[in-house]
Amino acid sequence: MQTISSTAGEVTSRELRQPQSPLVTIKGEPLPLTSSKFVLSDLAFYYGKVQALAGISITIPANHITAIIGPSGCGKSTLLRTLNRMNDLIPKTRIEGQVFLDGDDIYSPNVDVVDVRRRVGMVFQRPNPFPMSIYDNVSYGPRLYGVTKRADLDQIVEFSLQQAALWDEVKDKLTQSGMALSGGQQQRLCIARALAVEPDAILMDEPASALDPIATLKIEELMQTLKSSYTIVIVTHNMQQAARVSEFTAFMMIDQNRAGTLVEFGETAQIFTRPKNRQTEDYVTGRFG
């Protein structure tokens, strides 16, 4: 289980390697580069000959929740999936530009994609627990990384389930199948499974869209407790959700070539109350989309 220890020297070298990107501010103060988790630089993405993303540059701050919003088909999920290279699974796709994770270009040829995915966890739109026991679902990742001692696994499972606010509901039935839980519980199980490998960041692709309002609320509360330890990037088509949970918001649109572009990025409060861009304003006020 890797814990990224950032010494002063490392930080400096990372600063040097990171390209300058649009300045991000917190409460009007510029965000220091060291507290950025992902830096995307002029990113373009193609499904075959179809361009899905164009010219995206964005800095995603560490230990905050960043929401990606925009109309359907604008490439929100595609953008999210570039951050842990899940798009690699789709044949005939191509990426241009760079994605830096803690200063490392994750698309550079000498980077191991497995290592990237260990550092960047993901929660999907539909809960996708394995057809195994709750315990085995959570311990799946740690076991991959060679944790074999029962006591260690027990500890990780309990801690992860507690972090995912599921422990009290399942502690007496850890041997039951994860598939037997309700949809909201399954999604929190998937979050626990992702947390069990101690990632640096967690990507959430519309994590509550298949859930009822109460389960949605639980997931949103959970995100608030997780952000102190993890960087969270969430794609959502629900603007209220973005406004409720996130501190930063990226608004995406389709450009004239039908490729997804970043229209505006900033603090969530600013995006929703004082958008700088006319398209953003139209979208968040509900004039279209």
Binding site: V114, R117, R118, N128, F130, G141, A194
Partner: peptide, 15 residues
């Protein structure tokens, strides 16, 4: 087998 099962495993850093 649903693609989601493969994605779940790969996203956890499985080969």
């Amino acid at each position: 087998i649903p693609m989601a099962q493969r994605e779940a495993s790969l996203a956890l850093g499985a080969t």
